[in-house]
């Protein structure tokens, strides 16, 4: 039995990610239990953790703190495979400039920035924000979660803020939208993505499958 805890801190829709993991689990032919939870015991008894997030970072961080999620995942962070998605990835950074500046969990160095108003392309045309749709990810390091995913594959993004870091060693993927943004970070047992693997059809399913079989090394 592969137990996956999808951390629920009341910020919207966890249906997609839950369904996608269940689907991939079935394809793997392995019994997969997906638990949407904020319960410390569920988290400690799970084999792996998905840390999602949608909406505004201020509200996300407020709920994370109120429910003590940051403390509840502290032990897990040291050992279990963790996949952070979208605002879940952003919440792992030191801080975000969204909502006039928000302190985040700080597992990764760097901050979350706004795309710019206006964001301009190389020919000075205004680009749409949010960055919404299928964009390519350039893989900047080898990683178990990239297995069977060709470099420059497209994944589904939807976000107005992006991760910026100088800790290049942690960068696992880069995407260009007006500027190069960090679309994936990894260290030890943590893999964080700005895009939505649960909405990225075949490539997203491959990544989720890799996550379900990843030992976190």
């Amino acid at each position: 039995m592969n137990k996956v805890a999808v951390i629920d801190y009341g910020m919207g829709n966890l249906h997609s990610v839950t369904k996608a993991i269940e689907y991939v689990g079935r394809e793997l032919g392995e019994e997969t239990e997906v638990l949407v939870t904020s319960n410390a015991q569920d988290i400690s008894q799970s084999d792996r953790i998905v840390f999602p997030g949608v909406g505004a970072i201020r509200d996300c961080m407020a709920e994370i703190k109120r429910l003590g999620i940051d403390k509840k995942i502290q032990d897990a962070i040291k050992e279990k495979p963790i996949l952070a998605i979208c605002v879940g990835m952003q919440a792992l950074m030191k801080q975000s400039e969204e909502n006039h500046g928000v302190q985040c969990i700080g597992l990764f160095d760097g901050e979350v920035k706004f795309f710019g108003d206006p964001l301009l392309d190389s020919e000075n045309r205004i680009m749409k924000v949010p960055h919404m749709g299928w964009n390519q990810v350039r893989q900047t390091k080898n990683h178990a979660l990239w297995r069977d995913i060709p470099d420059h594959s497209r994944f589904y993004f939807v976000h107005s803020y992006y991760v910026d870091t100088e800790d290049l060693e942690k960068v696992a993927g880069i995407t260009n939208y007006g500027l190069d943004i960090v679309s994936c970070l990894s260290k030890e047992n943590i893999f964080a993505v700005q895009f939505h693997p649960e909405k990225s059809q075949k490539m997203g399913q491959t990544l989720l499958r890799n996550f379900l079989t990843w030992d976190g090394q």
């Binding site: 960055h131 749709g133 299928w134 964009n135 390519q136 420059h152 497209r154 993004f157 260009n176 939208y177």
Partner: peptide
Amino acid sequence: MGLAKRII
């Protein structure tokens, strides 16, 4: 190469 236009 970058963001793709979508068909819905």
